[in-house]
Amino acid sequence: MRALWQKLYGWLDERIGFDDFYKNLLDRPEPRGNWWNTLGSASLFLFIMQVLTGIFLTVYYNPSPDHAYESILYIMNDVQFGWLVRGIHHWGASLMVLVVFIHMLRTFVTASYKYPRELTWLVGIGLLLITIGMGFTGYLLPWHQMAYWATTVGTAIAGSVPFLGDFILQALRGGPDLSALTLQRFYAAHIWILPLLLGGLIGFHLFLIIKHGESHWPDKED
């Protein structure tokens, strides 16, 4: 049995190269870190939690004005542990915005955005804005009063841009008012467009972090 396992490992290692993974990803030297340095990985963990719980929710959720509210009630009342998964997704969204924002503040305070990590910062701001976009689009999906009217006002703000405002408003809402189209649009943005963007940019962000290493905590010499 053991021999078989070793054989299998050897075969895979020959083709994948676990040693390279270990050397390049895990066994990296790092400056002495502290607990503030865990905020980035905490954001990543929250993103993964949101993806997993979100996929579960799409199994039952129905993005139409007639059924969205009822499908959420069904998840909350009738699906086994539906209330737990939705609860984690709901609170995870708030926590993710908070953690990503504090992560940005930490980077600002330690000035980690300076050479050679300017691009990491730029991508990071993109991640922060998309995270907020995820919150904004996800908030409409339960199709309750608060969601409906908050989105009405939120999209109206986007509509106040000079010259382009009307176009942006119509593009966001799919018409002059909130409708089934708006819900479909926000749903598509929430489960496809923004998560794909977010996932891609996270990959780039991580690549840059591994390339340049985590920044060290600045002292008087810096």
């Binding site: 909350m76 919150g135 409906y148």
Partner: peptide
């Protein structure tokens, strides 16, 4: 949070109820 606080939904969206005072997510 999911167990002890839960999620507090408002009633179903009602486009005719224009008197509803909108309240965005806390981070807005």
């Amino acid at each position: 949070l999911a167990t002890f606080v839960g999620v507090h939904d408002s009633p179903k969206a009602d486009p005719s109820d224009t008197s509803y005072i909108p309240r965005p997510e806390w981070y807005f």
